[in-house]
Design a protein around this nucleic acid. Sequence first.
DNA 1: TTTCAACATGTCAATATAGACATGTTTATA
DNA 2: TATAAACATGTCTATATTGACATGTTGAAA
Lengths: 181, 181
Amino acid sequence: MGTLGYAILGLLHRRSMTGYELSKEFESGLFEVWSAKHSQIYPELKGLYEAGLIEYQVEISGTVLEKKVYTITPAGQQALRDWAQAPCGPLQTPKDEFRLRLFFSDCIPPQRRRQRLEERLAQHRQRLAQIEKDREKFDTLPPREGQAFSDYLVLLGGIAREEATCRWLETCLELCRQQEA
Amino acid sequence: MGTLGYAILGLLHRRSMTGYELSKEFESGLFEVWSAKHSQIYPELKGLYEAGLIEYQVEISGTVLEKKVYTITPAGQQALRDWAQAPCGPLQTPKDEFRLRLFFSDCIPPQRRRQRLEERLAQHRQRLAQIEKDREKFDTLPPREGQAFSDYLVLLGGIAREEATCRWLETCLELCRQQEA
DNA sequence: TTTCAACATGTCAATATAGACATGTTTATA
DNA sequence: TATAAACATGTCTATATTGACATGTTGAAA
């Protein structure tokens, strides 16, 4: 099974959900960590079900709309534990199209490069603000047992990454401007 | 054309290379930025050639070994410039399997989680040491024109990312240990 | 009461990527 | 001179991922 399967298993371990809710989780809580479109989620759910790792019950929303609420099975919980415990292997390249463009930016006008850096900085600042607002929900350090602690660690990781990125982009802009003179 | 095509175009804009050398570039200079296996590179080169964006000449290594040295064409340079100038669009999720595992780590023994954090920290420290050695090659700030400047900016980005990651992992370990008492 | 956004579930085709399979040469060193 | 690592180029299959296509319901607000 691929990583997406475990991501879904992990989310369902926290609470039972529909495919639609899963796709929303990837956009919110897992935004800094993993992503998947609904077109990938629904087939994956089918596979997990056939593998006996999840089950579902149909609930009626309103009068006719059927939704499938998925729940993790004991076999699914075991698979999740095994995966979560295993080591990750050597560091992989986190693909970053912006950095790639910057790497080859010597062939574009300097003011255009500055413009792109500024745009990007604005995006990361906005993201940082959002994620720091998420942090406010944790008024006290959550206890080590329980998912709130894991959530908190990953949240700190997101903040660390966004802060570092913002500082880096600010440095880039400074260096670009410095040489203007 | 996908991002890989532009990555190859960008590398060939710097200097003419064989497919093999391109694959090495992805492991070294582009390690923090993009990755591709040779099984993806060779077909992509074929496509770029058919699109008229690159050409090649066959050189003989030793007595019989033929290698294709690829060169970017004017059309390729134009395509590269157009791409490098364009904006990147909204922030994407940088997929990170380690963070995903950590996010679901409440279902594994705490000492196992600490072990994984320590392993990961060692990997990132090693990577940081390597990348900081690369930085030493830049004794002075390179002039804004020319690729050395772009290289330098991206290198700073790698250092910033690795430093932030190391600090974050150290914090995670501290928090894990703190609650031990 | 209409109408729009959010809820809800799927499929399909195209592309991207990884890993295995396949083969052979050159160069440095033991 | 054997041999191993690095050089060199490809293909193939399976899987992962995206974006478009397709359809319909529900709840809230105007």
